[in-house]
Design a binder for these strands. Structure first.
Lengths: 378, 378
DNA sequence: GACCATAATCTAAGCCTCGAAGAAAGTCAG
DNA sequence: CTGACTTTCTTCGAGGCTTAGATTATGGTC
């Protein structure tokens, strides 16, 4: 609890911690004493007195531990080493031939990358708290971390098992959009909210739903698939097999397709930028449909904030944010929705690895250890 | 924690409680001793031994306290008194002229009803733990409990304030669909799940979304408005002002309207039953759109179970459940969805008052008292 | 330099939880 | 019927965490 308060509340004095956590000053004092002794936290300067004893500021020691974040993307595997302050200490990239995503090759890239960044970052191995991996598609819970990703042709790839064979570090695998969402939540535009929607538009559409301050994963880790929210019953075919999904209209691929632009994945960004420059009736429809989708989300989740991110999302939002807000408001009851609550992401499209690293750090900050809501009696 | 385990886990021995809660047998023993002394729990028979000392079963004392549940409906205000076991002890109904829902009149009905059922139930006033009220529309958080309900013409009715002027009992006001959903969650088809969608189809469409074992209310208590999930962008006009809402197709009113049947609200049930009997192309479309809506919900929430309730929902589901399951599956990725997870509600349409009473009881069972996810530092 | 204000620490007490030991209340074999 | 055995429940002392209240530390103000 204290660690979380310090981590997200920036440097703070013991006194502020006492107020923030509700613990007594005495408890904070003894606890911080222990944490200081264990080197988990460190002093971070003083604040000049305004009449009394000056406050000593404390913060989490960034060098106490390190986390590896991995982004398994369409074109490359990116591996990055972060300290607890989420500063990058080392990077490694491995290009992947677009069509071919051999699971074993990907796993090998990840494992080599992990060793490489730990070596390059000059970090003692025992201080590495774990490896977080963000992948496309749906990840099943369980030690094997079965991954289903249509875009990669992965049906049930046991990525967890493949990686565990090559490293003994704690391992966390999750959908890349969710890791990116968690990054926006912790360090980006979602900061400070407890109920938010983070929608990530890239080539496709993904997202993360934040409830009670945490990314909601549902009963089987598959919640938050914003891309497959239906906006037009019986509408355009989506690559998931269904019809009328948001992703069938909103991802860069879908937008370009609808506009009749031919572009392979490497050119998508330039092509979309050109489309925005030149204008197109498709864009108006896109904004409208995004508004419809967001209004559904508002009515379902009543979020405090809606963050639009991902490279295509930032491109669209940069020019059309007002339109998106208006389109959402037009479909939404006035009470639960303020247009200004729709904002753009702040972290850019490369935050998947950062978010993956936060998966490692999250349990370190106390996991919240919620009591099981209802204990089961046999 | 012990109370919750006992309440939802039925009668149980101290030993079972120890296993269920993770507390040691010693702790359970002392705690239950205190609870017994305070009369919060009582013994509930024995289980014959199978070789050792027989177990003494414990349960929550239903007579320890009482809760009043109120259902503010279209045609009447229903007030019911429940004991902790949620057995009805007394009822009072007050007819309301359909069109006219004068807030002060409604409040007066509620207050008279509360006094009436407490008197009729012969319950000591100090044992009444509070009053829960289920209303249509959206309830704003705060002491005034501002209610916005288009169907009643309520713009911002401070129902909480009106009631608090006439009673000093603790007061809980929430949307009726959510209270009903909580009733299904605690005592009906949702029992035992921690992640569920409960969709209630009556004249309109409402719902409750259960995450982490509790009804999710979002940042402003307005989450879970399943009726305003959009299924057809730019589709039929909904009474909320937007277009293409699920409620514009799925509520009894909308179904009958689409089928060209004229029926006022008193006849809706009979008319819908006749439509189901006779068949209609509208029904196929309804099933399809419900499937589309549910598939959106599955992708967003990845629930363990989907409960269809409300009088119209039970009517539809009774005949067309297989079709609904198939329509949902057709629009949903295979991994997160099993068709059998769609089930019918078990409590019938009168569970609003029951659910409202659970609002009163909920904090009594320990509120879960989740630590604030991130303490705020000034 | 006396006095005040605020921050941090120390101290003793209270509460919760647990392990270990043992009491209670049965079954079962002979 | 008796003694061994099984399982449930209770008691007791120890240990840990948290707190209120007193105390010490560190600076400003007059």
């Amino acid at each position: 609890m204290l660690l979380r308060a310090l981590y997200f509340g920036g440097p703070a004095s013991r006194n502020e911690l006492s107020a923030a956590t509700g613990l007594s000053a005495a408890t904070v004092s003894t606890m911080t004493g222990d944490l200081l002794a264990d080197n988990v936290i460190v002093e971070a300067g003083h604040v000049d007195s305004d009449g009394g004893r000056p406050r000593v500021l404390l913060k989490v020691n960034p060098a106490y531990g390190y986390a590896v974040g991995v982004d398994v993307g369409e074109t490359q595997v990116r591996v990055e080493l972060f300290d607890l302050g989420m500063n990058v200490r080392a990077r490694a990239h491995y290009a992947v031939r677009s069509a071919k995503h051999d699971p074993e090759l990907v796993a090998r890239h990840i494992l080599t990358g992990v060793d490489a960044v730990i070596a390059e970052g000059e970090v003692p191995a025992r201080q590495v708290l774990g490896v977080g991996v963000g992948v496309p598609g749906i990840v099943e819970p369980g030690a094997d971390a079965l991954v289903r990703a249509k875009t990669f042709g992965w049906e049930a790839v046991p990525l967890g098992a493949l990686l565990r064979a090559g490293t003994s570090l704690p391992l966390f695998v999750d959908n890349g959009a969710k890791t990116m969402g968690q990054a926006e939540l912790w360090f980006g535009s979602g900061r400070g909210t407890t109920d938010a929607i983070i929608i990530l538009v890239g080539s496709g559409v993904g997202g993360a739903i934040v409830t009670d301050g945490r990314v909601y994963r549902g009963a089987g880790m598959a919640a938050g698939e914003v891309g497959h929210l239906k906006v037009v019953a019986g509408g355009r075919a989506c690559r998931c097999g269904a019809r009328g999904c948001l992703e069938a209209y909103l991802g860069a691929e879908a937008i370009l397709d609808r506009a009749g632009v031919v572009a392979d994945s490497a050119d998508e960004e330039a092509a979309l930028a050109r489309l925005l420059e030149e204008g197109s009736p498709v864009l108006g429809e896109t904004v409208h449909l995004l508004g419809v989708g967001l209004s559904s989300l508002v009515h379902l989740f009543n979020p405090e904030r809606i963050v639009i991110g991902g490279w295509a999302g930032l491109l669209l939002g940069g020019r059309l944010l007002d339109g998106i807000r208006a389109a959402t408001a037009a479909n939404t009851l006035a009470q639960p929705f303020q247009p200004e609550s729709v904002v753009l992401g702040r972290l850019g499209p490369d935050a998947v690895a950062l978010g993956a690293a936060t998966l490692v750090v999250e349990p370190f900050f106390g996991d919240a250890a919620y009591p099981a809501s209802v204990p089961t009696i046999a």
